[in-house]
Design a protein around this nucleic acid. Structure first.
Length: 445
RNA sequence: UCCGUAGUAGCUCAAUUGGCAGAGCAAUCGGCUGUUAACCGAUCGGUUCUUGGUUCAAGUCCAAGCUACGGAGCCA
């Protein structure tokens, strides 16, 4: 029994006999010579079948292998510059081949397919190179950001998915039948984070969140994953320091560990190498002025209509894109109008029409990847806002109590994992950044 | 919800002014000892999204609907 190896480690076994187990990604042949590109989840390696080096029965199996058939192959590793794969450069000369199952008419061929077809076969599509690369990068981004927070003294504190009240008042939520009562799927863990910082100082939660919005764009999912740090005794400026440290750590780790995957998805690595702290910080007022200046340069009537903006209005998607295009790194926009932001955001002292909020806009048109703010820590002001929004005191009683027992200035933010992955990978849609996307018209598979 | 585009073989797409339903890939069979989405030969493959209408004749024109894609709003 030879050693079973992972293909990613193949370079360590040059000249040795090994066993690999996996699936046929592709096969080409020239009569008595067959090339089997085998993937095992960790990588891909070319396995070469010569008729004279195998039993006749096993060679016939090799000659007839279909795409995604599962096999166990034993053979000798040898370096060969012609060998494709990941990492590539090594191939396996097959001595024994065991067929686990001959796959029957695999639907996703190595040719072009449409989006709908691929999404209908997402359970199989995740096997493809490009999806393999993206989902591996996603895992690294999550790990890098969590490691960074852990190293900074944050504690992971999980927050509930089923909640008694909608977290934010602005967006529609999903109802859940909770033994005859109505509960809601979480849109954010923030309110619970605010309780948890009073116990642990610096915390974050990480998990799925749910928005019942009828949004159908390349930036929206119904179910998406969010990493939400919250920090006691934290100002908006300190919050921006944390955000840029977190984001640049994620980019740095992807560059360090995934050159191979970035090559598969053909990402322009130069643009990622530029993503280092600090990031530009501009006020909402400044952003509006920049957009108005840009607007004045435009001739096209449709573009002019999209980019028109007055002080006090919220940004639409075209505004965010235009702003981000002015920078080659993510850019912070702070002090948004109070009226367009959530009820818990602290008004700026002396200028209550704007609030201590900050969004981080990703470059290359990917839009907002982070939203954050200083939270109101004054009991009376928070209670007034809750009443003014018509939210109902009962569900928020515990939240108000946080301001009654040792309230402190604090701040936090949420970073959308899928938008971040889409930006770092240079994808044109978030649906490829999550294994099984939930979209307005899709919950299958 | 609004605006725009599309729907033809398992997949990706053609089909001229309304005039015989086509190709590549996949699949099946055969050939080939260095292939990189191999190549060569053959075979197989159709409710042209649905319903109704115009016409000698509809994939093509008209009406309604369905589905998908892209964008807006809203958001991360």
């Amino acid at each position: 029994m030879t050693k079973v190896i992972q293909i990613k480690d193949i370079a360590n076994y040059d000249g040795q006999e090994v066993t690999v187990r996996g699936w046929v990604y592709n096969r080409t042949g020239k009569g008595r010579l067959q090339f089997i590109l085998l993937r095992d989840g960790s990588g891909q390696a070319q396995c070469v079948a010569f008729k004279k080096e195998m039993t006749p029965d096993e060679f016939e199996i090799a000659r007839g292998l279909s795409q995604e058939s599962s096999v166990i192959i034993t053979g000798t590793v040898r370096a060969d510059e012609r060998a494709p794969g990941y990492p590539g450069g090594y191939e396996i000369g097959i001595q024994q081949l065991q067929l686990v199952q001959q796959a029957d008419d695999y639907p996703i061929t190595p040719k072009d397919h449409g989006t709908e077809y691929l999404m209908n076969h997402r359970h199989l599509w995740v096997r493809s190179n490009r999806q393999w690369a993206i989902l591996r990068i996603r895992a690294t981004i999550i790990k890098a950001m969590r490691d960074w927070l852990d190293d900074q003294g944050f504690l992971l504190v999980d927050t509930p998915i089923i909640t008694p009240a909608a977290g934010e008042e602005t967006t529609p939520v999903f109802d859940v039948d909770y033994f005859g009562e109505t509960a809601y799927l979480a849109q954010t863990g923030q309110l619970y984070n605010e309780a948890n910082i009073m116990a642990f100082g610096k915390v974050y939660c990480f998990g799925p969140t749910f928005r019942a919005e009828k949004s159908k764009t390349r930036r929206h999912l119904i179910e998406f994953w969010m990493l939400e740090p919250e920090i006691a005794f934290c100002s908006l400026e300190e919050l921006m320091d944390i955000e840029e440290g977190l984001v640049s750590a994620g980019v740095e780790q992807v560059l360090a560990k995934h050159q191979q995957e970035l090559a598969i998805i053909e990402r322009d690595v130069n643009k990622l190498e530029a993503i280092t702290a600090p990031f530009a910080r501009i006020s909402y007022d400044d952003a509006v002025a920049r957009l108005q200046a840009r607007h004045a340069e435009l001739d096209d009537p449709q573009q002019r209509a999209e980019l028109a903006i007055e002080l006090g209005e919220d940004f639409g998607s075209p505004h965010e894109t235009a702003l981000a295009e002015m920078f080659d790194k993510p850019v912070f926009v702070y002090h948004y109008p109070t009226a367009v932001k959530a009820f818990y955001m602290t008004p700026v002292a002396g200028r209550p029409e704007v609030c201590r909020s900050v969004d981080l806009l990703a470059p290359e048109g990917y839009g907002e990847i982070i939203g954050g703010s200083e939270r109101i820590h004054d009991l009376d002001l928070l209670a007034r806002n809750i009443d003014a929004m018509g939210l109902g005191r009962e569900a928020y009683e515990w939240y108000l109590e946080l301001r009654r027992f040792g309230t402190v200035p604090h701040a936090g933010f949420g970073i959308g994992i899928e938008r971040t992955v889409a930006w770092i990978c240079g994808l044109n849609h978030v649906r490829e950044t999550i294994p099984y996307a939930r979209l307005l018209n899709r919950k299958y598979p």
